[in-house]
Amino acid sequence: MSDPLFGAMRQSIIDGAPDTATELAHQALANGIDPLEAVNQGFAAGIKFAGDQFGCGEMFLPDLLASAEAMKAAIKILEPEMLKRGSEREALGKIVLGTARGDIHDIGKNLVATILSASGFQIFDLGTSVTPEQFVAKAKEVDADIVGVSALLTTTMAGQKAVIEALDRNGLRPRVKAIIGGAAVTAKWAAEIGADGFSRNAIDALELAKNLMGKVMNEVRSKGIAEA
């Protein structure tokens, strides 16, 4: 079943047009379209397309951000109705994000938060210069699946290691996955400090988070089987 509105919804996200997306979301509700359907078949398809286009160099960061903003606008309209119907969009996972202690550079972290959030993850953004203790506390509080630590400066990269150690110390890993990012971060550094993954940009971070969620689900399942 495909509503003709779905195509327009998808396009409004690709165009990065929050006003159009808002209008289409209202229209969907007025037409009695299931809001979850509107998201999954309409708006989210636009985000997926934008991500793919970014991946192959046809769309750029400002385009991607505009798409994410349009997505946010549509969700804002649809969310109350989804809640009412008890059909809220199931989050792909819960992610706690922040920059490493001493690092106030958050442009990369913000991009990741925007893209992941638009793609269906629930994001808990702790902001900049976050201590390992703060990461641990938030991860416990929200029962996070993934903790992401960003560091631009080579001098603050040590803070990524400190977060991973703190997660270990508190027994949160391996259930909670730790991912890192930042200009100077390399695969080697990620391996050295025992991170579960790293990514070069926000779209790679989305892929990484999705893969890790697959892993999280598998581990939960196998644990369930083992316990059963």
Partner: peptide
């Protein structure tokens, strides 16, 4: 400049 593909400088 800010690279609009990579987010790098």
């Amino acid at each position: 400049i800010f690279d609009m593909r990579t987010g790098g400088a």
